[in-house]
Design a protein around this nucleic acid. Structure first.
Lengths: 210, 210
DNA sequence: TGCAATTAGGACCGATCGGTCCTAGTTTAT
DNA sequence: ATAAACTAGGACCGATCGGTCCTAATTGCA
């Protein structure tokens, strides 16, 4: 029933991630998901736009389940989780051979000034992503300086990661993203309370003092 | 002679910046630059691709002359110049009403995995941009820690700025970019030698411990 | 058994794409 | 004055775009 839909959405996600929304034609999607023809596709989706929306929703759901899940691991120190999350994005990008950056950033650049529907949906995606990091920072507040602005810091993290993805994609060099990821972790580390001094970026953070 | 060419390139730059390369048709460019027809356009450019290349070159030249020029101001403290540069990008984006982000980042997201010619040219743009910041950091080295990696830091700055542009474009909220810019300046400030404490970002960086 | 959903596949639509070709009038340098 | 460059404008090309319509075979479920 929705198996075919999933098939189509998966194929479309790959294509849109690789080529962008505009450059991905409905025929491309049909070919990739082995449908029998246009009518077969339009049996499941009423327009290319609707397909795009659903692909975006699906991409974020998957990202929230798989990628963002690290941020919620209850057994790991919050900041350590954030570092692991950053590393996981680097690893994922390395696995893809530095191709096809963030599905959100790519779509954002393409559609933000072009299509209000997409713009709002992507804004929502970033907002939810940001919220996840804010929760984590809230959890980590005993270790953090009192003046840490969780909203701002979470946005900074996302921006740096998105920029890193874009640049290492252009240069096709994962080392670029690795360097930025390390710097980003170091920056997060500078928000630690002065009392907790034994910080190392990829090493384990120290416990809060009394 | 090349006045018409400039006219075309300017129009194309605006359109490509707003809609992207693929979504900008040759007819759009013709309309916007008030040419008489297709042949008139193809009198000056042999293909849309060549137009795209020249637009990109021109955009970077302008950026190097106007935007990046701040980085070379000999009468201002190097790091102060870097902060001013960051602020100038924020201001420019605010003036544009948070629309049409970085011409390079936008084109990068669109073309990186799609068109090798563009990918290489954009990589070159980022490389030159990065070099400018590296020179500045080299100038500032008496104030900086010995272990500062200029290449890495310069890339970090660009990535954060590009990410900030993209996100504040999606959210249409300049405050987002302002926050990231401030954090970025603070991060740069953390690279200061412990001995040089009296630095003014726009919020002053961290205190050196005794 | 029978009805509904799914699959199959092709013809077709108007619009737009990048690009070519052709004719002819108008500037501009030499 | 004369050739070369520029401006003007339209017809046209094959390809592709998103999308519709239609017929018919096949499947799954009640």
């Amino acid at each position: 029933m929705n198996q075919r839909r999933s098939q189509i959405l998966d194929a479309a996600a790959v294509l849109i991630g690789r080529q962008g929304y505009t450059a991905t034609s409905v025929d491309d999607v049909i070919r990739e998901s082995r449908l029998s023809g246009k009518s077969h596709f339009y049996h499941y989706f009423k327009s290319k736009e609707e397909l795009g929306y659903e692909v975006l929703d699906r991409q974020f759901e998957r990202f929230a389940e798989r990628g963002l899940a690290i941020l919620r691991e209850p057994m790991i120190d919050p900041l350590e989780r954030l570092y692991l999350f950053i590393d996981s994005l680097v690893a994922a990008h390395a696995e893809r051979g530095c191709q096809g950056g963030s599905p959100f950033g790519t779509l954002a650049s393409e559609m933000a000034d072009q299509h209000e529907g997409f713009r709002l949906r992507i804004a929502h995606v970033f907002s939810r992503w940001s919220s996840q990091i804010q929760s984590l920072l809230w959890e980590a507040r005993p270790q953090l300086n009192d003046d840490v602005d969780a909203v701002r810091l979470s946005r900074f993290v996302i921006a740096a990661l998105e920029g890193a993805l874009m640049m290492s994609r252009v240069k096709r060099d994962i080392a670029l993203m690795e360097g930025i990821a390390e710097d980003l972790k170091r920056f997060i580390g500078t928000h630690l309370r002065a009392s907790a001094a034994s910080q190392s970026a990829s090493g384990s953070p120290s416990l809060p003092n009394a």
